[in-house]
């Protein structure tokens, strides 16, 4: 995203139209521009494509539906972004969402009130994130192995706690959360927007954000500079767990029950959204808006294909092709 140093002052001084045109053309043939903006380009492309082919796609109601459907994935991809920025990966994300939902359901069923249930669900998933972080740093086990292990462990825990049975959560608060609107957006969309804003500020305007990217980019230099990289990593995984907790509340609100079943597409799509968002899987390079738009793009893709009556069999294929294409374009990142 950073312009070459000699271009930047020039375009700032001179008239925008005169000077920026050559640089815009230069931008358009520069592969790294496309790499940086892959998710935006993809989203715009999809909106044009589906807007032309399906009359319903661009309707206000459908736009609202896409945003509502994307809210959970946006929150999860933010969590995944923090972890990936440290050059890690959180495979336990979708399982944490399931455990959060199960705990929420059980505590609500026990009659402790919906707020206590939500808070405890978020605390539980954050604790899982914390545990992931501790095992990776203090235990010196690769992130992939640790989160794969917790993925399985949490799955079992969820099944044990729930007895394999779904729990109904008939709460008016959650019903309002899922179906209520404030202005043009549903409440879950506002939750996602708030998460994007907070995460963006945390990543770009705090010392923690700088330390996070330094830890992911050059861990050794970062620790030589006095950054406590282990703490930063633990924090990143805890944030990921926290996001899983928020997502589990949104999930229970949306489907009205807490089910001990893992939605694997949430995990895969969270990683896909992060890749689409231009976040480097080797760490040190991240944005929040990119993955959020990536999540929106994946949701819009499934929505559009559904509107066009494309068979469900082709939809994962389309997602796969787009993710791999995005990764290919990403090779041209500077």
């Amino acid at each position: 995203m950073s312009l070459p140093a000699d271009n930047a002052p020039a375009s700032r001084q001179a008239g925008v139209h005169e000077e920026s045109r050559p640089s815009l053309a230069a931008l358009l043939i520069d592969p790294s521009f496309w790499a940086d903006w892959a998710s935006v380009v993809g989203l715009v492309g999809l909106v044009i494509l589906f807007g032309v082919t399906s009359p319903v796609f661009l309707s206000v109601a459908n736009m609202q539906a896409i945003l509502l459907a994307a809210a959970i994935l946006v929150v999860l991809s933010i969590g995944q972004t923090f972890v990936v920025a440290t050059s890690g990966i959180d495979l336990s994300l979708a399982a944490s969402v399931m455990l959060g939902a199960v705990i929420l359901g059980l505590i609500h069923a026990a009659g402790l009130g919906i707020f206590a249930a939500c808070v405890l669900a978020v605390l539980a998933t954050s604790a899982i994130g914390l545990m992931n972080g501790l095992l990776i740093t203090a235990g010196r086990i690769p992130d992939f192995v640790v989160t794969l292990g917790t993925l399985s462990g949490i799955t079992g825990l969820g099944l044990i706690l729930s007895g394999g049975e779904p729990t109904m959560v008939g709460s008016t608060f959650l019903l309002k959360l899922a179906s209520g609107y404030l202005g043009p957006f549903g409440y879950p969309v506002w939750v996602a927007i708030a998460a994007v804003l907070v995460a963006h500020v945390a990543l770009y305007h705090t010392r923690f954000g700088v330390h996070l990217l330094a830890t992911g980019g050059q861990a050794e230099s970062a620790s030589a500079l006095g950054i406590r990289t282990n703490r930063v990593k633990i924090a990143a995984y805890t944030i990921s767990g926290f996001c899983a907790g928020i997502a589990s509340i949104l999930l229970v609100a949306r489907i009205g029950s807490a089910e001990p079943q893992i939605n694997t597409s949430l995990l895969l799509n969270s990683v896909a959204a992060v890749v689409l968002g231009g976040v480097s899987l080797f760490g040190g390079r991240a944005s929040i808006l990119g993955p959020a738009i990536g999540a929106l793009m994946l949701t819009a893709l499934v929505n559009g294909l559904t509107l066009l009556s494309v068979s469900a069999f082709y939809q994962p294929l389309a997602v796969g092709v787009i993710v791999v294409l995005a990764a290919l374009i990403m090779r041209y990142q500077k």
Partner: peptide, 8 residues
């Protein structure tokens, strides 16, 4: 397991 995807 895709309860939300089905709803979407």
């Amino acid at each position: 397991g895709d309860a939300t995807g089905q709803a979407d």
